[in-house]
Amino acid sequence: AQFMFTLLAKFARLERETLRERILSGMEEARRQGKKIGRPDGRVEEKSVFLKKYSSVARNLRAGLSVRKTAARRSDKLCEVSINTVRKVKALL
């Protein structure tokens, strides 16, 4: 049983290495052809725009509400926002 487990683990590691090599070679080929790899340009909002968009979340955080309570709180424009959005607003404040 130990031998079989070792053998399967070795095959899994080899398959992972093969997959990684194929992904990296595909990315290199795409770069050679002039394609952009990664996030498209212009997708990051400015700090002021983001805070203005979630002003009620910022207001609740400044009032002392926790991240989870702020995320679950219903406000005038936003129904519920995700915890990650509240964390981003908190980091920008």
Rank of each mutant, 00 (worst) to 15 (best):
N84K: 12
V44G: 03
E45H: 06
P40H: 05
V86S: 02
G34Q: 05
R13H: 13
R43E: 04
M27Q: 14
E28T: 15
S66I: 00
E17L: 10
Y54F: 12
K47A: 05
N84W: 12
T6D: 15
A72W: 02
P40R: 09
N84I: 01
V89G: 04
R22P: 01
K69Y: 04
E80K: 07
K53H: 13
R16P: 03
V44E: 06
R31P: 04
K53F: 06
M27F: 14
I83A: 11
E29S: 07
N84L: 10
A30N: 04
R87C: 08
G26I: 00
E21P: 02
S82H: 03
L65M: 15
E17T: 01
S48Q: 07
A12C: 09
K36W: 13
S56E: 11
A58N: 02
G42V: 02
K52F: 09
E80F: 06
R59A: 13
S82R: 03
V81G: 00
F50P: 05
L8M: 01
L8S: 05
F3V: 14
V49K: 11
R87H: 13
A9K: 10
E17D: 13
R20Q: 12
R87A: 08
R22Y: 05
R87T: 05
C79T: 09
R13N: 15
V81D: 03
D41W: 08
S82D: 01
Q33A: 11
K88Y: 00
F5H: 15
D76A: 15
K36G: 00
E17H: 02
F5T: 15
R39C: 03
